[in-house]
Structures are given as structure tokens and as C-alpha cells.
Amino acid sequence: MESMDAVSAAGEVDFSLLALFFQADWVVKLVMLGLLGASVWSWAIIIDKSMLYNRARRAMNRFDKTFWSGQSLEELYQTLSQRTVTGLDAVFVAAMKEWKRSHEQNASSPIGLQARLEKVLDVAIGRESDVLEKNLGFLATVASASPFVGLFGTVWGIMNAFQSIAGSKSTSLAVVAPGIAEALFATALGLLAAIPATIAYNKLSSDSGKLTARLESFADEFSTILSRQLEARSKR
């Protein structure tokens, strides 16, 4: 009979998500809010990076088509230097700017010019790579830390459940269920934040690496083209 009363009493407890939040201890509430905020911010980063990488791929494809179309480097530089550039455009403009500056100053050392061009290309690639990888570290942190933060909330909630048992001197389901439910809710929020962040981090890191590889590949090709022109001028 007592068992039936306990189940009936437990059934009267509100186990909706909002009710579990408002009934939770303040520490568990902070854990839940932190995990929820981390999840929302992670999704904002995921959407932003996905759109950024799609734009970057399209821009690189357009630049490749234009660059290898036979248009002169000077004409392409004049076109791109008049607007804000990113990706391959930015790498190209940075190298061409150093190339033109060196020739305007009558740089006499081909070796020095080649070294400066390679340095400029490395700096431009590093700058673009930083933009691509920005905020990916936050996803990695959420992916690794959220389960443990959720576990902390779970442990705290279970401790509160045991305190309720000790205070009421009863092990009925009505006494234990709310605290256990709060604890499990914190665990669920931890997984809710961690799982998408883990999947997205792996995918976006791979995409970022591929885009950076394209930048480096173009830099090598463009450096070779400029090196040939430099040798041709030095023989005149």
C-alpha cells in the first residue's frame, strides 16, 4: 500500500523541463544555464563557420578560374587591389604588392626578393588561416568539457537527493525522484552541448585544413611563377 502511495505521490511531481530547472539547486541551475549557453554559442559558431567555408570555397574557385584564364598578373592585381580581399585573393595581392614595391625601389638582389616574397606569402597564409580557425578552439573546449560539467551537476543533484532522503527519513520515490531527475537533466544538457560540438569540430577542422592547404598550394605555384619571371629579368 505504501508503495502505491509513493508512486502516486511521485506521479504528482512535475517532471517537465522547466519545472526541473526551477526546482533545482542554485548550483545545478548555474550548470544548466552554462551548458545551455555553451550549446547555443556552439551552434552559432557551427552555422557561421559553415557559411564562411562555403563562401571561401566559392571565392577560391572563382579566383582559380580567373588566375589561370591567361589574364595578366598586373591587370588582376589592379582589379583586386581596389577592394577588400580574402583567401587566395589576399595571398595574391600581398605577394604582388611586395613584387611591385621591390621593383619600384630597384631591388638588386634576386635572392633577397625571393626571400621577401616567400615571407610575405607565409604571413598572408597565416593571417587567412587564423580567420578560418577562429573560434574552433571554443568548440573543442565545449566538446571535451561539457560532459564533465554535466557530470558535476549530476553528482550535485544526487547529493541533494540523498540529503532529502536524510531530512525526510523516507526512501519513497516521491522524495528521491525530483533530485535524481534534476541530476539526469544536467547530464543530458552536457551531452546536448558536447555531441554536436565534437562532430562539428572534427568536420570544421578538416574543412579548415583543406582550405589552408589550397592557400599553401597556390602560394607555392605563384612563388614559382614569380621566380621564373625574376630569373628572366635578371638575364636581360
Rank of each mutant, 00 (worst) to 15 (best):
M1H: 04
E2G: 09
S3T: 14
S3K: 12
V7I: 13
V7F: 01
S8T: 07
A9V: 01
A9Q: 14
G11C: 02
E12V: 10
V13M: 08
D14M: 10
S16N: 14
L18Q: 10
F21G: 03
Q23H: 08
W26H: 09
V28N: 02
V28E: 05
K29V: 04
M32V: 04
L33M: 11
L36Q: 07
G37R: 04
G37T: 08
S39V: 00
S42M: 01
W43A: 00
W43L: 01
A44S: 10
I46E: 00
D48N: 13
D48Q: 04
L52Q: 01
Y53K: 12
R57K: 03
R57W: 13
A59N: 09
N61A: 05
R62I: 03
F63T: 04
K65F: 12
F67L: 15
E74K: 14
L76R: 13
Q78A: 13
L80M: 13
Q82E: 14
T84E: 15
T84D: 05
T84I: 08
V85F: 01
T86A: 15
G87D: 03
D89S: 04
A90V: 04
V91H: 11
V93Y: 02
A95P: 01
M96K: 10
K100S: 06
K100C: 06
K100Y: 15
S102M: 07
H103V: 05
E104A: 09
E104L: 02
N106V: 05
A107T: 15
I111N: 03
G112E: 13
G112R: 00
L113H: 05
A115W: 09
A115D: 04
L117K: 12
E118N: 10
V123M: 08
I125Y: 04
R127F: 12
D130I: 06
L132D: 05
K134L: 11
G137P: 07
A140G: 15
T141I: 11
T141F: 12
V142S: 03
S146Y: 06
V149P: 03
G150T: 13
G150H: 07
L151T: 02
V155K: 11
V155C: 11
W156P: 02
W156Y: 14
I158S: 03
N160I: 13
F162C: 08
G167E: 13
S168N: 15
K169Q: 14
K169Y: 07
K169T: 04
S170N: 15
T171N: 15
S172M: 05
L173N: 12
L173I: 15
V176G: 13
A177H: 05
P178W: 02
I180T: 02
L184P: 07
L184D: 03
L184Q: 07
F185S: 07
A188G: 06
L189R: 11
L191H: 09
L191R: 09
L192V: 01
A194H: 08
A194P: 03
A197F: 11
I199F: 00
Y201T: 07
N202Y: 09
N202A: 15
K203C: 08
L204M: 08
S208P: 07
S208G: 14
K210L: 06
L211Q: 14
T212Y: 06
A213H: 12
E216G: 08
S217L: 06
F218E: 10
T224L: 14
T224N: 11
L226N: 10
R228Q: 12
L230Q: 05
L230N: 01
E231A: 12
A232F: 10
